[in-house]
Amino acid sequence: MKSIAELKAIREQMQSRINMRKEDEEGIRVVVGMATCGIAAGARPVLATFVDEIGRRNLQDVTVSQTGCIGVCRLEPIVEIYEPGKEKVTYVKMNPEKAARVVSEHLVNHRVVEEYTIGAAE
């Protein structure tokens, strides 16, 4: 059974690492639409995939957040990526497999996965 002691050990490991982070540096933001239609269309596992993959690869300058309605129900789940100095990229009809590919290609290698973008879907 998991115990609080284990959680304490996790904190000890993390504290030093967190303190070392450069707070002022602006990183990449991943925003997942989590309103009713997004949830119904599968936004929850998409978000989970981003969180897991970003954690696993230890991408320190990427943050994942959630938002309400992005406004295009039939294209949900929708994910927006904001990179400093670049235009926003909107990915549509996402699923966990696509999310994993966006992490490896876009977040790690900075190459937009054009075929998943709203431009390709319209």
Binding site: K2, M14, V51, G55
Partner: peptide
């Protein structure tokens, strides 16, 4: 909401 904590 750090990944390790969420995992736990």
């Amino acid at each position: 909401n750090e990944p390790e904590v969420l995992n736990w």
